[in-house]
């Protein structure tokens, strides 16, 4: 048996070594699960529209996971495009450069909104960032001191909110969405307190504001939005954090909360009135352009108004389109193969 296993190992190793590093003829994409549905639609239609190119393959793995894979190096067994629901970080550009990925092209594809929604048969919410912070925080400033979060019902936070138990279902820290949720709602809400304003160290502010209570009233979900929805199905009073497009396709079950009086919609996000939104990106490995067929064509196809403009398939799927000026800028960056600049 031992000999046989060794023999097997040798055969397998020989078989794989004999196989030449196969040149890929389709684009490989990985990354953000928020961008994935959009990317998949474009990939599918790209393959069908251009008979000379194969349809790209779109994997998930989260924004950070995708960029990490992206930065593994250059070659057919590394991915060509990383999807991301946030901009690439300077540290990631550095890591990429170290592995030989020296030039990266950034493509912004549109915007995405994040909404707070509850079941149709539970209370209707008109939230302020301050309410969200007070519902989720571990400690709350009270008369100059930080005390453990005393709130158990929404109505205790504000009279205008429904008189029901606090249960807030938020995305886990593996999601890019979590970052937006914190940056656009929790931190601004937290900073309305004089005690927090008085803090000088920005890092300490973030640490204090983002600390979530651990008494079970805040639930972190590592899976996708269907898991969040399942939580709401199980618990009538729960309030969940969803992507706008997910809410939109399940409007019959969910009702959306206003933030600072603004109803989230394509229009309010496009104009910037609704605060909780973010741009979505993908990143192209410049070294693969011309090696993997169809890379720049895919990017240009992605940015064409018929694909991602208003009334397009991506628009219908919930992506908030770029305006004409932004679109022209991104298309020019693709054509010029402009390297990404990170602040």
């Amino acid at each position: 048996m031992k000999f046989r296993l060794t023999a097997l190992a040798v055969t397998v190793a020989a078989a794989t070594a004999a196989m030449p590093a196969m040149a890929r003829d389709n684009i490989q994409i990985a990354g953000s699960s928020t961008v994935l549905p959009f990317s998949s639609i474009v990939a599918e239609n790209f393959g069908k529209t251009f008979p000379q190119f194969k349809a790209p393959v779109v994997g998930s793995g989260g924004s950070s996971g995708g960029l990490r894979q992206f930065c593994q190096g250059v070659g057919a067994n590394t991915i060509d495009i990383a999807n991301s629901s946030r901009q690439i970080k300077a540290s990631e550009v550095e890591a990429c450069a170290k592995a030989g990925v020296t030039k990266i092209i950034e493509v912004k594809i549109g915007y995405d909104g994040i909404v707070f929604a509850s079941r149709r048969d539970s209370g209707k919410f008109a939230l302020e960032p301050r309410h969200i912070f007070m519902a989720a925080a571990k400690e709350i400033p009270q008369d100059g001191k930080m005390v453990a979060n005393p709130y158990t019902r929404w109505s205790q936070i504000d009279r205008s909110l429904p008189d029901q138990e606090i249960t807030l279902v938020i995305p886990g820290s593996n999601h890019g969405t979590r970052e937006v949720y914190e940056e656009k709602t929790v931190i601004p809400g937290c900073k309305t307190f004089a005690e927090v304003k008085a803090m000088t160290d920005d890092k300490a502010v973030h640490k204090f504001c983002n600390a979530i209570r651990t008494d079970g009233r805040v639930v972190e979900v590592a899976g996708d939005y269907t898991e969040t929805l399942a939580r709401l199905d199980a618990q009538k009073t729960a309030v969940g954090v969803f992507g706008l497009s997910f809410y939109d396709q399940n409007r019959d079950r969910l009702q959306v909360a206003t933030i600072s009086g603004v109803v989230p919609s394509e229009a309010t996000i496009e104009t910037g009135k609704y605060p909780v939104s973010r741009p979505l990106y993908f990143y192209i490995k410049d070294a693969h352009v011309g090696v993997i067929p169809g890379l720049l064509e895919f990017a240009q196809y992605h940015l064409s108004p018929q694909v991602s403009g208003s009334g397009s398939p991506l628009d219908k799927a919930g992506l908030i389109p770029l305006n004409a000026k932004e679109r022209a800028e991104v298309v020019k960056a693709i054509k010029d193969r402009k390297a990404v600049e990170v602040k």
Binding site: G47, A55, G59, S60
Partner: peptide
């Protein structure tokens, strides 16, 4: 091993996604 990717083609060989 990445088999959860979105693939819109039928694989022709075991080396296709």
């Amino acid at each position: 091993i990445g088999m959860s990717a979105f693939v819109s083609a039928v694989p022709a060989t075991p080396f296709d996604q």
